[in-house]
Simulated scan of single mutants.
Amino acid sequence: MKKQLTAISIPTLPEGDYPDLRMPGLSLRVGKKRKTWTLRYRVGEKWRRDTLGYYLGLNPPEGSDHMGLVDAREAARNRLDRVEAGVPAEEKAAHPKQAGMTLEQLFDKYEKARMKKAGKGMKTLPEAMRAVRRILADYLKLPAKNFSKGDLRKVRDEVAKSAPQMSDRFMSYLGTIMKWAAQEDHIPMNFVPDTLRVGPGLVKRKRVLTPDEMRAIWAACPLMKSAEGKAYGRLVRFLLVVAQRISEGAALKHGDIIGGRWKQGEEDNKSGREHLLKLPQLALDQLGTGKADQFCFPGKNGKLGGFSKFKEELDELSGVQGWRHHDLRRTASTNMQELSIEPHIIDMVLNHAIKGVGGHYMHAKLTEAKGEALEKWAVDLAKILGGQTRNVV
């Protein structure tokens, strides 16, 4: 027996036809790509089936021709009233494709064109497309020409509330796509460059993990269920020790560690310069073993990704909520400051780009000083963790 149509059940229905028990003749046809409302009724000796509209999800974009259950029943009632009165049936509801290319189709087309052209930027393309599709998930079915500057500002501000840096990164990713779309006449214009970026300026995070929180997270890391989850757990521990970015840690391969030193090339980090770190034993303990070309924290098919789902599991296991991966970096650097390590050394450990004239004249790598700073922090972290440091994942 098929499920009864309700506003709650519709989003989870599998493929098939679902008649509405309250409105005779009305049914929802669930296909692979869309959900279509149809009405079957009789005119004289013949039966007809008309398309009334389309169901576009729980959060349909503003301006879309979404038809929910209540709207479908009303449309069916009106159609039957017209038939009974002898009024000719209305024209068939416009298919979503007739409204032009959707954002989802636009992104697919851009990605194919970009991959075909190749060249600079290919390394970050998968990450960029994942981010744009995830952030604009509620708008993917909306015709690209209907996506407005108001929609963009709404999404920008929503992301900036919890992830200010991602907000700016998203604007950069989308701006590149929309520039191409405007050049190819898929949209009238690219308004992304004219939209203010609010990222880190809107919300400045100050979260530093407490000793109790560090202990709870560290203890929960080896309790992750899957092999990928356990790799993620080792990565979290590693980042707390070395204060590097999660993207850099996830890209780390065993061959990048030589004599206990982690070498990042210019193309391997955000600062665009070579970065050499002498790792303390507490960090090396998290790397495991493998061939030179294998990732230290492997995912199912290569580099580890999908951090958000693993973090949700870790939050539940540890009981620590509201922290972000970048807070590990802030926690480590703040504790190094408490250990009286000089600020410019901490900056070098974090591999911050040197701004202004200094970036032109100061090129020292300070490898030994960075190593000593990390070693000092690792010793202090081991004291905070107590006996947990013997529990290597």
Rank of each mutant, 00 (worst) to 15 (best):
L58G: 06
L58Q: 11
N59M: 05
N59Q: 07
N59A: 03
P61H: 01
P61S: 06
P61N: 03
P61G: 00
P61E: 05
P61M: 10
E62S: 06
E62Q: 09
E62F: 02
G63S: 04
G63V: 05
G63C: 01
G63A: 01
S64R: 08
S64W: 04
D65N: 12
D65L: 09
H66C: 00
H66V: 07
M67L: 13
M67G: 06
M67P: 03
M67Y: 08
M67V: 12
G68F: 06
G68T: 08
L69F: 10
L69N: 01
L69S: 06
V70M: 10
V70D: 11
V70L: 08
V70H: 08
V70N: 12
V70W: 11
D71S: 06
D71G: 02
A72H: 04
A72N: 05
R73L: 00
R73T: 02
R73N: 03
R73G: 04
R73P: 00
E74M: 11
E74G: 01
E74W: 04
E74Q: 14
E74S: 12
A76M: 01
A76N: 05
R77N: 02
R77S: 09
R77A: 06
R77V: 05
R77Y: 05
N78W: 12
N78C: 11
N78E: 08
N78Y: 08
R79F: 01
L80W: 10
L80R: 00
D81C: 06
D81P: 02
D81Y: 06
R82W: 11
R82S: 14
R82M: 15
R82H: 12
R82D: 15
R82T: 12
R82Q: 11
V83P: 03
V83S: 03
V83I: 07
V83H: 01
V83F: 10
V83E: 07
V83C: 06
E84N: 08
E84R: 02
A85V: 04
G86I: 10
G86R: 02
V87Y: 00
V87F: 07
V87G: 07
V87D: 09
P88L: 15
P88H: 15
P88F: 14
A89G: 01
A89W: 05
E90A: 15
E90Y: 02
E90F: 03
E91N: 09
E91D: 11
K92V: 15
K92S: 13
K92W: 09
K92G: 07
K92T: 15
A93R: 01
A93I: 07
A93W: 00
A93Q: 06
A94W: 01
A94E: 08
A94M: 13
A94I: 12
A94V: 14
A94T: 12
H95I: 12
H95N: 14
H95T: 05
P96Y: 13
P96V: 08
P96A: 15
P96E: 14
K97N: 02
K97W: 11
K97M: 13
Q98F: 15
Q98I: 10
Q98N: 11
A99L: 11
A99T: 08
A99Y: 13
G100D: 07
G100S: 12
M101K: 09
T102D: 08
T102M: 10
T102C: 01
T102G: 04
L103F: 09
L103A: 02
L103K: 03
L103S: 04
E104A: 13
E104V: 05
E104G: 15
E104Y: 09
